[in-house]
Design a protein around this nucleic acid. Structure first.
Lengths: 124, 124
DNA sequence: CAAATATAGATTGTATACAACTTAATTTTA
DNA sequence: TAAAATTAAGTTGTATACAATCTATATTTG
């Protein structure tokens, strides 16, 4: 899957995990590292270096919260927001590539999510 | 998934990718690195260090082939073969953990394999 | 047959994952 | 309220993945 996304994301200078972070932030800006981690099921050990690289690329910035100085708000820069337009075609191209009928896609997604939920319950 | 396998494989002193290699060799011993890679869809960049660690643990040995000195045959040691018995319960415990009906399991597996085949075609 | 090409593994460099630990800050609780 | 327990990020160490490259060997071609 990563390989298939590859050529598409290369033009955006994003890796696949970086793209996932961008998807989360394009939908809801200014989330804490923890909130991003909950949505992507990644912990700070993965996200901290990932976000650091993305910050270095100028895609986002991090601000320590006044309300809770343990938390860090991750927000998109103008450049990060601008990239959204460039990335709009990605899901469509991938959907086309995968050659799945809407119905099959939804079924597969739901089955994987159910399995994921079961695994989370076991690992809790 | 790796987390759920974790406790089971820990008793065998195997990581999940290492367990996958053992499954392949328990089924068919003495395969080349390339053949193992084809079955697991892993390249030598991943397998070489993985196999080296497993060799260091005494699970397998590598022999350069006389018939083609580019190839290396990977074979289980007595210890590697003996581990098969210890690992027999793993699939059953996992099947139980996943809480999937036979029918749902087969459907999910087949859908994922179909998607994987489509991706391979695209990435070819 | 000799040069060009291809192949199998190993190595190098980059990018995740994640457990375990550390630090700083916030809650809980005795 | 002061000590204990929790929590959010970040750091460290280990283990994959995989592209690109390297080396040695084998196969193909002109």
């Amino acid at each position: 899957m990563t390989q298939t996304y590859g050529p598409l994301l290369e033009t955006l200078d994003l890796t696949y995990p970086q793209y996932l972070v961008m998807l989360v932030l394009w939908k809801t800006d200014d989330l804490s590292v923890k909130e991003i981690g909950q949505q992507l099921k990644l912990d700070s050990g993965t996200l901290s270096p990932l976000l650091k690289k993305m910050q270095a690329k100028g895609l986002l910035q991090k601000v320590r919260l006044d309300s809770d100085e343990r938390s860090v708000a991750v927000g998109l820069t103008a450049q990060g927001q601008a990239l959204k337009k460039q990335a709009e075609k990605v899901p469509l191209v991938m959907a086309c590539n995968l050659n799945l009928k809407e119905k099959d896609f939804v079924e597969l997604r739901d089955k994987v999510q159910a399995l994921s939920a079961q695994l989370e319950k076991l690992n809790a």
